[in-house]
Amino acid sequence: MHTSLPPRVVADALWLLTARSRGGQHWLHNATCDIQTVEIAGQSQPVSLLDGSNWQESYVASPRSTWLRYPRQEMLRGASPAKAQAIKLLSCPILGPLSTLFKASKLDQAAIIANHLVSTNLYADWSAGEISKTTDKLLSTYPQRPLMMRNICPQVNPELAASLLATGWQLLPSRMIYLCDPQQTSVWKHNHVKQDARLLDHPEVEVLTHEQLQMQDIAALQQLYRQLFIDKHSYLNPDFTAAFFELCLETQFLEMHALRWRGRLVGVLGIYVHHENGWLTTPLIGYDTSLPKELGLYRRLMALLLKTARDKKLKLHYSSGASQFKRARGGIPQLEYTAIQNRHLSTTAVQSTALFARLLRTFAPAILKKADGI
């Protein structure tokens, strides 16, 4: 694709134009949302809209999957049949009322702003004035829907978080994430980081750059991602389509890297770079889970991620999960929030959201810390 525009602008525009005409399912099998747009600070941003989510709806499109379905799946994952049955029985008295409360809040019908349907959206630090103007515009456009922004972390976007609070948005705890500054020499003193760096340099497994990957690799790359995030972890994770991988290879919507071993692809890493706010993350990572652990494929991929952040002089957003692994590699735990604006809705919706928010603020931080062993 030949153009004078910056690659990031081209990639985002193509993602957005296609999603507007074909819906979120063009990029994710499990995101049945419509995509519309809103302008923030002179740039078009996606707004994802769900009218009703099913049990397979990815958490990147469905708040119900984020707060209710995914935690339940995590509790059931790896449990014995007897333990799974016990969890189901014990969770019903809790999840039943929460589900009713959630429905009354209308949160699953939220207009989710600047949502690119990835695990971690990276934002510019929009000012309070920009947030206020955008909020007014969206309240007029979506009078029956709450407004929402995922992935709000004061340590990543301090001005944005402050702007949202200053303009009447609420911040609800959503997950524990891990942040790292690879420019700090202390990060590279961790024994695990040193060991992973040596492993990455070992020629047994070859690292392929974005330019070395071709369209005929898409099926293999997609399968590697699905092996880890869909088959091993959860069908509520983003299930990227072949079209999404093609977009990435064509436009660098994600900067793609791969691992090759004995002539075949065995690992994939998709890197999302936001130079404006100085952060980098990976919404897409996967490897051949059938191969021996001794190959250290996940360690190699994460070492490549850390090295890339250092080389680009950016901070690294490790996202969530694999908490012990990430802490051993310089990851600092931080709470991430979802921002909600619902002052325009009915009293029932506002009060239901307020109660749900109170429950989250009371219990979620401790639960998230305990789950991550903090």
Rank of each mutant, 00 (worst) to 15 (best):
Q252C: 07
Q252K: 15
L254F: 15
M256A: 13
A258T: 08
R260T: 07
R260D: 09
R260V: 08
W261K: 05
R262M: 05
R264G: 00
R264S: 13
V266I: 08
G267F: 09
V268R: 08
V268Q: 05
L269G: 05
I271V: 15
Y272D: 12
Y272K: 15
Y272T: 01
Y272Q: 15
V273N: 03
V273P: 00
V273G: 00
H274Q: 14
H275P: 01
E276I: 07
E276A: 13
E276T: 14
G278S: 07
L280P: 08
T281R: 00
T281P: 03
T281C: 14
T282V: 06
T282G: 03
P283Y: 02
P283T: 03
P283Q: 00
P283M: 02
L284K: 11
I285D: 00
G286I: 11
G286T: 10
Y287A: 01
Y287E: 01
D288G: 00
D288L: 04
T289C: 14
T289K: 09
L291T: 02
L291E: 02
P292T: 04
K293P: 03
K293Y: 10
E294R: 13
L295D: 12
Y298P: 05
Y298E: 07
R299D: 11
R300D: 02
L301Y: 11
L301F: 10
M302K: 04
M302P: 00
M302G: 04
A303L: 07
A303V: 09
A303Y: 09
L305T: 06
L305C: 05
L305W: 04
L306T: 10
L306D: 03
K307C: 02
K307F: 00
A309L: 10
A309N: 06
R310E: 09
D311L: 11
D311C: 00
D311H: 09
K312T: 04
L314K: 01
L314Y: 03
L314T: 00
H317T: 07
H317C: 10
Y318W: 15
Y318L: 15
S319I: 05
G321A: 06
G321Q: 08
G321F: 08
A322I: 13
A322K: 05
